[in-house]
Design a protein around this nucleic acid. Structure first.
Lengths: 341, 341
DNA sequence: CGATGATTTGAGAGCGCTCTCAAGCTCGTT
DNA sequence: AACGAGCTTGAGAGCGCTCTCAAATCATCG
């Protein structure tokens, strides 16, 4: 192991060419004679040359890395399959473009400082942000750092404003998805349909609640809503509350599969049969939906693909420029019928 | 938003001092008069100056980031609470030292190339590596890149060799832990004790198997071992196999809690009562151990603390130098008795 | 065969920062 | 008052790379 890494200079000397020529070869070899390229590549191999990333970043102003910021504590990030799935799509797209991914999550409020410093410090070329809450400082931080961002899920603000134009995001049509779910329950003859909402400071939760209300007939009870937090435990709590407030409910639409699993557990604890006594519909169509007893009827969204799209959007925004101006993407939801409803 | 970021030069001009002085203030302000420091800090604030990381890295040869490499596919990384917990400890220690964490996992064999390029590319000052398998190329890659590494779990090789001296690692005493588990089962009067091992190309799995064999009395059956893969599904498969081979077993020691949960499910499916018919002991004492019915008796290891130790070890190895030569750490296991055995 | 244009190559100027070294100060001491 | 011992400060070199620009080389053709 040579303790000191060879530089461009060393390779150039070895190959008998100039630094500039080696640089050209390293970066694709445009306009370099084949014979020379060959010689340079040999020198690179012999010396075990690896470009110094810092030097390169210093002059190109590109780091080749993007941040993925999730506004949730680490425990949620690593336990919610939604993030895992999304992250999978993102990694795929990113590593195809030889771009590194730096994962950041928000453990507590003071982390915003650290994250702000990181995003502003020029460590990354852009950011993907998830799970923003309505008063989230992250968009402001990114704007202040002049950093391109793509949001996962429609952010709370839209259009021209202080944060610099239209936000770029990838989302599913949550409202339509919720309507699909409720429609299905109505079609199955259910009337007392409750809703376990997500945290109402997130647009996805709000949109799903709105869709639920849209579809409910005028004569149906409209107040059977409890707010959860997208976790199984939150689903349990919400279900317990609903059961107390409306013991005779005959269906539940949960705003996420994870909350639905919690609801399922609670219903079983209270001796309600699913779907006979109470029908349950989830949202997301992630793995847990297939594990439960009975398997969950749920609203599908292609989370991995959405992750991929986010990454692609960000890459084009960062990359060449405006030859294909990226625009927000909204994917259609799809009802998947299993056994819980 | 100023499109162009202010440089040290700009701050220096504004504060009426030299670049060097501003640099000193930014880096702690040693040997700079209080009045001057004040003036410089004002200039920094007014201009919104943020140091350019690349430039700094170029001269200091420190990136302020470390990689965490997990030799498992992303789906495992994000579903196994062991990694989540470990990662939590690591993040804590790292962000306390203002060091960034870059997470890398190995999706398939060809990822090794990408990871090698990344580790060799000078993007990070060191690496934390987990879940290595016996023939893993990662240690070689790190050695080739001359990168300080701390391993999670004793690596398969030890002592002086081609990979450059003693590997630094943090582990728990797996063998002793396994003995604790088996001892407990024996004390409860169990005799036909099976073992669901982890993948035997990992030292932790081998050591636990060894501990299990150590403690088994000479007249007990020694062949009730099935190999799992540390996942719930693997636990199910192994349990099914064991039940076929030895329908009368009265206890199972699983090498991880996750496999134990799978075993539990399978046992219930086969109408075995736990712990009455079959006692079950897990390993790790992570969250799932408390969720199961019945809650798992298991061997505790402080995974988060171990993560923190790994990070600390790496930081000292990277940092100052040899004033406190870091050494491998082996933590003691602890039996936690709940209801499954 | 010289002119024209395209292609290939090298020299050299930075990118923004740290760090060494020497010069300029401030003091306490004699 | 003079002098050496710290403190503070600034000048300037240099980290390894990219990129512009001009020089050199090659190809093409009237």
């Amino acid at each position: 192991m040579n303790d000191v890494r060879p530089t461009l200079e060393a390779v150039a000397a070895r190959a008998g060419v100039s630094r500039a020529t080696v640089s050209r070869v390293v970066n694709g070899g445009l306009n370099v004679r084949a014979a020379v390229q060959e010689r340079v590549r040999e020198a690179i191999a012999e010396l075990g040359y690896v470009p110094n990333q810092a030097a390169r970043t210093l002059v190109t102003r590109r780091t080749g890395a993007v941040a993925v910021v999730i506004a949730e504590p680490e425990s949620r990030v690593f336990s919610d399959p939604f993030f895992a799935q999304q992250l999978r799509g993102i990694s795929r797209a990113l590593s195809a473009a030889d771009t590194q991914l730096v994962l950041l999550y928000v453990e507590d409020r003071e982390d915003y400082g650290r994250i702000g410093r990181f995003l502003g410090g020029g460590h990354v070329d852009g950011a993907l942000m998830f799970s923003l809450h309505s008063d989230d400082p992250l968009p402001g931080i990114a704007a202040a750092a002049d950093l391109p961002v793509v949001y996962g899920g429609r952010p709370g603000w839209e259009g021209e404003d202080s944060l610099g134009g239209d936000p770029l995001f990838v989302d599913t049509d949550n409202r339509a998805g919720a309507r699909l779910a409720v429609r299905h329950l109505l079609d199955r003859g259910r009337h007392r349909i409750a809703h376990i909402a997500g945290p109402l400071d997130q647009t996805s939760a709000v949109d799903r609640l709105r869709g639920y209300r849209d579809e409910l007939p005028a004569d149906a009870p409209h107040d059977l809503v409890a707010e959860g937090d997208f976790t199984p435990a939150g689903g349990e709590r919400a279900m317990t509350e609903l059961l107390t407030r409306a013991p005779h409910l005959d269906a539940v639409f949960a705003a996420s599969d994870l909350m639905a699993t919690g609801a399922l557990r609670t219903l079983q604890l209270h001796d309600r049969r699913v779907p006979d006594d109470v029908a349950v519909v989830g949202y997301d169509d992630l793995e847990p939906a297939t594990w439960t007893h009975p398997p969950l009827t749920t609203v599908h969204q292609d989370v991995e693909e959405m992750g991929r799209m986010m990454a692609t959007l960000l890459l084009t925004r960062i990359g060449a420029g405006t030859d294909d101006p990226p625009a927000p993407v909204i994917t259609p939801p799809l009802l998947v019928i299993r056994e819980s409803a």
